[in-house]
């Protein structure tokens, strides 16, 4: 189990770095989807089946569809984006630093003999029960976060009335 997790973590790191380093928005969205899918695998192996399903279906599936739809609707052409980045140097120290940190964390984990406990097996309550009666504060916080996302899009991307 630990081997699958460590391999998945390495892939997760690679996909996340590629999502940040890519000059193509479309490729970034796809790398992000792959990162979410890998995270889903880790959650599944750890026994958090509900979290894994939500991660894969929502983060890897639905959000990627929204991203790709938004990118295809945007008017900026691929050539324009490439031109915008053509004179900018890529900061390759970022992936190098991340790999160093990743290796350090794995060494730390191995040195401390961190056991990976299957916490999901201990949970016997109903899913709804856990969601609302034990993690209610998180749910409220998440709802408000989504609300702010909506407000942010409205405030930051809508043309001002006075400009019209």
């Amino acid at each position: 189990m630990a081997t699958i997790i460590y391999i998945s973590l390495a892939f997760l790191l690679i996909f996340c770095v590629m999502a940040v380093m890519s000059h193509s928005l479309l490729k970034s969205a796809i790398y992000l989807a792959l990162a979410s899918a890998t995270l889903g695998v880790i959650l599944y192996v750890l026994g958090a089946y509900w979290a894994a399903v939500i991660e894969v279906s929502v983060c890897s599936g639905l959000i990627t569809v929204i991203f790709i739809s938004a990118i295809s609707l945007s008017k900026i052409k691929k050539e324009e984006v490439q031109k915008l980045y053509s004179d900018k140097k890529r900061m390759w120290f970022l992936p190098v630093m991340l790999i160093v940190v990743g290796v350090a964390l794995i060494v730390l984990a191995l040195a401390n003999d961190l056991s990976l406990t299957n916490t999901a097996e201990k949970v016997t309550e109903d899913f709804r029960e856990i969601f609302w009666n034990t993690r209610q504060a998180d749910i409220i916080g998440q709802i408000v976060t989504i609300l702010i996302g909506g407000i942010a899009v409205f405030v930051l991307f809508r043309d001002d009335e006075d400009k019209k």
């Binding site: 916080g141 998440q142 976060t145």
Partner: peptide, 10 residues
């Protein structure tokens, strides 16, 4: 602490 983190992001 996790709920605190969620509201911190809000």
């Amino acid at each position: 602490l996790f709920s605190l983190y969620v509201f911190l992001d809000v």
